[in-house]
Design a binder for these strands. Structure first.
Length: 839
RNA sequence: GGGGACGUAGUUCAGUUGGUUAGAACGCUGCCCUGUCACGGCAGAGGCCGCGGGUUCGAGUCCCGUCGUCCCCGCCA
C-alpha cells in the first residue's frame, strides 16, 4: 500500500480531548487504528493515542477518501483532517469521554501500516504474560498500561516537587561502585582496567547518602535504581526504584513528617487525599497485637484471651501459662465444614512451640463462660470465625529463650491470621476497598525495632537493620557495656501499608566510638570492619553530624495505586520470574571477538590466554555434544541404553562443572572433577564394548596425569591453601562413584561378562588414575606436594584438556550406540585439535 | 535448590472412559452492508495438540523426561 508523507501536517489535538464545545472546528488528529467498523459506504474508525479515543467517520461525501479508509487495518498509523461534528440521539456513545462528538474526515494520510499484531491493544482479553512481554511495545499501547506509566510519572514528579520545596536536593550517586552492606547478592561488573577486580551495582545508595550528610548536603533525595541479584517474585524485580532520602539533625518524627508529606503528595497526584498523619506502633506492640512487624490494619488484630480461662484450664489444654494466649478473628466467614477446618489447620506453622486450638465448640463444652468471654473480648459477631493460639507447655527452657518463644507464638498467630484472611478474602471483603478511597489505605509506622538478632546457626548477633543504625539513646549504655543486647532497641522504623512494607529507614550512628562498639558486638574485628567500610569509618572521624533517613519502594507504591498484582504492570520493561527480558532476550551469551574475551578473562585472575581458549573450546564442545545427543532425548529402552544415557549425563554435568571451576581459576578442584569425566568416558567404552578404544584411552589418561604431576611444583602449604584443599576433597567426595564391585553388581546380566573382562585392565590403570589426584591432593597435608592451589594454570589446563579430550569420546561412543550422527562433532574437533596442539 | 498451576489455530479457551477427519469465539482473507461503537451477514484460510521418549492395535488424552510462563517456599528489607 502507498504510504503518505507527514508533510507539513500538524496535529492540532490529541485523540482524547475533543468535546461538544469543539463542534465545527477543523482539526487534525494522528494516532493508531484501534478498531474499525466498516459498513461499506460508511466506515467508522476509533483513532487511538495515549490520551484516548475519537471516532472518525468516512462516508460517500468523499469517495476517494472512503476508498482509502477501507484499506485500514489494526494498528495502522494515520493522520486525519476533518470537521468536528456533534452526535445526536442514538449516535452518542456514553462509554467514552469523546462520545458526544465525531470527526468527519476530509483528508486521510496513511503514515504507516502494521503487520497483523499477535494481539491488539484494543482486545478485551489479555494474552498470557509471555506474549505480552515479548511484544511489550504492543502491550504498552493498551490504555491501562498508558495509565500506569502516566501515574508513575505524576507520582514521581509530585514527590520530586514536594521534596524540592522542602529543601531536599536530588543528588546522583554512582552505579559502578563497591558492595554496600545490604544482605543481598551483588551484581558484579568486571573491570577492564584492573584485572581481576569488580565493580558492584548498588543495592541501595546507603553509604553514599550518609557520606553526603557528612559532606554538608543536609537534605538529600534521589529516585534511584537499585540492583539485587536475587530470585524474582511478583513484587520483586532485579532492578527496582527507590525513593531514597537522608537528612541531618533529624528527630525520628521529622523523618516521619517528611515521608507523610511526600506520600500525601504522591497520593494526591493519584487523586486521593490522605489524612496528614499515619498511625504509629512499636515493634513489640505490632508483634503482640498483630503477630507481624508489618501489620495489616484492615482486619481485627489478635486479642489476649488468657484471662477468660480459669487457672487450671491452661494446664488441661497443655498450654504454657508464661506464653501468650490469643484469639484470631476473621469476620464474616460463617459456618465451616469439618473438612475445611482441617484444611485450615495446614495453614498453621509446623514449628514446635505454638499450639492451635481451632474447635471453639468443643472448648465451649468444658468452659462455656470462657468462650462467651472470648466472644465479648474479640467483639465477635455470630458469623465471625475464631481460633485460639497459645504456647505448648514445656517448650521454652531458659529465660533467654522465653522472649524468642513468645514472639514465635505471636508470629504463628499472625501468620495464621493473614493466611485465613487471604483465604476468606471474598467473604470479609476487607481487601476489596475502592482504589480511590483514602480509607482503603491503612498506613502505619512501626518503630523501635530490635537492634540485634541472634543468629542461631552462626552463634552470633546480626544487625537487624544494618550496622549503621543507631541504638536508642536510652539503650546506649547496654551497647557500650555489651550486655542485654537482645533488649536494645534501634532507632529504626518501617512504613507499612496494608500489610506490605513500603519502606525502611533509621537514624544512623554518627559517633565512631558507638560504631566501633556495634561492630564489636556483631563479632566483626577491627580489620574486617576496616576492610569492608574503611573509607566510611574514616569519614565518620571528621565531624559527622547526626543524620538519618529512609528509602521507599516506588514500584510498589505505583502498583498499589494502580491496583496491580505485580510489579510488571508498572515497570515498562520488566523481567520474568527466571530473570529474562523476553523482548530483547537478555541475558545472552556474548559473541566474543578476541578483545572482549580479554576483558572477561581479566575478571578471572590467573587464567592464561591458552587456558581461556581451552575453556571456550570446551564450552563449545559441550554445546556440540548436546546438539547431537541431548541428555533428555536418549531412548532408554534397554538397560544398556539406560547406563549409557546416565554416563553421558554424568560426563556432561561434570564437564560443565569442571569448566566453571577452571574459569574461576580453581585448577585443582577442576582437575579432581575432570577425573570424573574420563571415568565416564572409560565406562562408556566398556559398556559400548569398544575394548580397543578403551585401552588406548587408559594409556593417554595415564600420560595426562603424569604430565600434570610433572607440571606441579613442590612448596609449603599455608592456611588458605589448606582450606582450599578441604574444598577440593569435598568436591572429590561429592563427585565420586560407587566402588567397582558395586558397579559391576548393578549391571544387567548381559553386560556383566564384558565388564568383568575389563576388570584387570581397569584396576591396573583406572583405579590408580582415579586415585592419583585425590591421593596426591591428600599428600599435600604432608607438605610434600602442592600447587599454587586454586590458582594454577597448569592444573586449569589439565582439567580443561581432560574435558576436551574425553568428553568428545563419550559423545562419539554414545552417539554411535544410539545411532545418532556424530558428524557435527568433526568440524569442532578440528578446531579443538588446533588449540590442543598449541601447548 | 524445592513445591504447585498452566502449555491445543495469531489470541483466549473447549476437547467426555484412550477410538473416525481436533472444535468454538475473537482476530485474519474475500465478498455484501450509510449510523456503528466488542457493528452485522455470507464464504474461506489457518494446527509438529511446547519438545523428546515410553505404554498401547490406537495417545491432544495415560506414564517418564525436558523446555517455557506464572505463583509460592528457600533467598531477598
Amino acid at each position: 500500500m502507498q504510504l503518505d508523507y507527514l508533510g507539513d501536517l500538524r496535529r492540532t489535538h490529541p485523540c482524547g480531548a475533543l468535546r461538544v464545545s469543539d463542534a465545527g472546528k477543523t482539526v487534525t488528529l494522528m494516532g493508531w487504528v484501534n478498531r474499525r467498523r466498516d459498513h461499506g459506504n460508511l466506515i467508522f474508525i476509533d483513532l487511538r493515542d495515549r490520551t484516548g479515543i475519537t471516532q472518525i467517520v468516512f462516508d460517500t461525501d468523499q469517495k476517494d477518501v472512503l476508498e482509502k479508509a477501507s484499506q485500514l487495518r489494526h494498528e495502522y498509523v494515520i493522520a486525519v483532517t476533518g470537521v468536528v461534528k456533534v452526535r445526536e440521539g442514538e449516535m452518542v456513545n456514553r462509554k467514552v469521554p469523546t462520545g458526544e462528538i465525531e470527526l468527519a474526515v476530509s483528508e486521510l494520510r496513511l503514515l504507516n501500516e502494521a503487520k497483523t499484531p499477535p494481539f491488539s491493544p484494543a482486545d478485551t482479553t489479555l494474552p498470557n504474560e509471555e506474549v505480552r512481554l515479548k511484544y511489550r511495545y504492543l502491550d504498552l499501547r493498551r490504555p491501562e498500561m498508558q495509565h500506569n506509566i502516566e501515574l508513575r510519572h505524576k507520582v514521581a514528579l509530585a514527590i520530586r516537587n514536594h521534596l524540592s520545596e522542602r529543601g531536599f536536593f536530588e543528588i546522583e550517586t554512582p552505579f559502578l561502585t563497591r558492595s554496600t552492606p545490604e544482605g543481598a547478592r551483588d551484581f558484579l561488573v568486571p573491570s577492564r582496567v584492573h584485572h581481576g577486580s569488580f565493580y558492584a551495582l548498588p543495592q541501595s545508595p546507603q553509604l553514599f547518602k550518609q557520606i553526603l550528610m557528612i559532606s554538608g548536603c543536609e537534605k538529600y533525595f534521589q529516585i534511584v535504581r537499585c540492583f539485587r541479584d536475587e530470585d524474582l517474585r511478583a513484587d520483586r524485580q532485579l532492578e527496582f526504584t527507590q525513593i531514597d532520602l537522608e537528612m541531618t539533625y533529624p528527630q525520628q518524627e521529622q523523618v516521619f513528617e517528611v515521608v507523610e508529606g511526600f506520600v500525601g503528595a504522591a497520593w494526591k497526584a493519584a487523586g486521593i487525599t490522605l489524612p496528614p498523619k499515619f498511625a504509629r506502633m512499636t515493634y513489640d506492640q505490632a508483634m503482640e497485637q498483630y503477630g507481624s512487624d508489618k501489620p495489616d490494619l484492615r482486619l481485627p488484630g489478635l486479642v489476649d484471651v488468657k484471662s477468660s480461662f480459669p487457672a487450671d484450664a491452661l494446664t488441661t489444654l497443655q498450654l504454657d501459662p508464661a506464653m501468650p494466649f490469643v484469639a484470631v478473628r476473621i469476620p464474616k466467614v460463617g459456618e465451616l465444614s469439618r473438612k475445611e477446618r482441617d484444611d485450615n489447620k495446614a495453614l498453621f506453622t509446623k514449628k514446635p512451640g505454638p499450639k492451635l486450638i481451632d474447635d471453639l465448640k468443643r472448648l465451649e463444652k468444658s468452659w462455656p463462660e470462657a468462650v462467651t468471654k472470648i466472644r465479648e473480648l474479640t467483639k465477635a459477631a455470630a458469623d465471625d470465625f475464631i481460633v485460639l493460639v497459645g504456647g505448648a507447655a514445656g517448650e521454652a527452657k531458659s529465660a533467654a529463650q522465653t522472649r524468642v518463644a513468645r514472639m514465635a507464638v505471636y508470629a504463628a498467630a499472625g501468620n495464621l491470621r493473614m493466611e485465613l484472611a487471604r483465604k476468606y478474602a471474598a467473604k470479609h471483603g476487607a481487601f476489596n476497598g475502592d482504589l480511590k478511597d483514602a480509607a482503603s489505605y491503612k498506613f502505619l509506622w512501626v518503630t523501635d525495632f530490635p537492634m540485634f538478632e541472634w543468629d542461631e546457626e552462626a552463634q552470633r548477633w546480626n544487625a537487624a537493620h544494618h550496622p549503621f543504625t543507631s541504638p536508642h539513646e536510652q539503650d546506649m549504655e547496654k551497647v557500650l557495656e555489651d550486655r542485654d543486647l537482645d533488649a536494645v532497641r534501634a532507632l529504626a522504623y518501617d512504613i507499612v501499608l496494608n500489610g506490605m512494607e513500603l519502606g525502611s529507614g533509621s537514624v544512623r550512628i554518627h559517633r565512631q566510638d558507638v560504631q566501633r562498639q556495634i561492630f564489636r558486638a556483631l563479632g566483626m574485628t577491627e580489620e574486617e570492619a576496616k576492610q569492608r567500610f574503611g573509607f566510611f569509618l574514616e569519614a565518620l572521624e571528621y565531624g559527622t553530624p547526626p543524620h538519618g533517613g529512609i528509602a521507599l519502594g516506588l514500584d510498589r507504591i505505583i502498583m498499589l495505586l494502580a491496583g496491580g498484582e505485580s510489579l510488571r504492570e508498572v515497570i515498562p520493561f520488566p523481567k520474568t520470574a527466571k530473570a529474562v527480558d523476553m523482548m530483547v532476550d537478555a541475558p545472552t551469551p556474548v559473541e566474543q571477538p578476541q578483545e572482549d574475551q580479554l576483558e572477561l578473562m581479566a575478571a578471572f585472575p590467573g587464567l592464561g590466554n591458552h587456558e581461556w581458549e581451552l575453556a571456550t573450546t570446551a564450552d563449545n564442545l559441550l554445546k556440540a555434544g548436546d546438539a547431537i545427543l541431548g541428555n533428555a532425548t536418549l531412548p532408554r529402552q534397554s538397560k544398556q541404553e539406560l547406563v549409557l544415557a546416565l554416563l553421558y549425563a554424568k560426563a556432561y554435568d561434570d564437564s560443565r562443572a569442571t569448566i566453571r571451576l577452571a574459569k574461576s581459576g580453581y585448577g585443582l578442584q577442576a582437575s579432581v572433577l575432570a577425573v570424573q569425566v574420563y571415568e565416564a568416558a572409560l565406562n562408556s567404552m566398556i559398556v559400548g564394548a569398544d575394548n580397543e578404544l578403551a585401552a588406548v584411552l587408559l594409556m593417554t589418561v595415564n600420560n595426562d596425569v603424569k604430565s600434570l604431576a610433572r607440571a606441579l611444583k613442590y612448596m609449603d602449604l599455608n592456611e588458605e591453601q589448606r582450606k582450599m584443599l578441604e574444598e577440593a576433597m569435598a568436591v572429590q567426595v561429592i563427585g565420586s562413584w560407587p566402588t567397582l564391585e558395586e558397579r559391576v553388581a548393578r549391571l544387567p546380566d548381559v553386560l556383566r561378562p564384558k565388564y568383568e573382562a575389563f576388570l584387570p585392565l581397569y584396576e591396573t590403570y583406572s583405579q590408580w588414575q582415579l586415585s592419583v589426584l585425590a591421593g596426591r591432593v591428600g599428600g599435600l597435608t604432608s607438605k610434600e606436594w602442592t600447587v599454587q592451589l586454586g590458582r594454577s594454570n597448569e592444573a586449569v589446563a589439565f582439567a580443561l584438556r581432560v574435558v576436551v579430550d574425553y568428553f568428545s569420546d563419550v559423545v562419539r561412543v554414545v552417539a554411535g550406540l544410539f545411532g545418532k550422527d556424530p558428524a557435527p562433532l568433526e568440524a569442532w574437533e578440528k578446531a579443538a585439535t588446533k588449540v590442543l596442539q598449541q601447548v
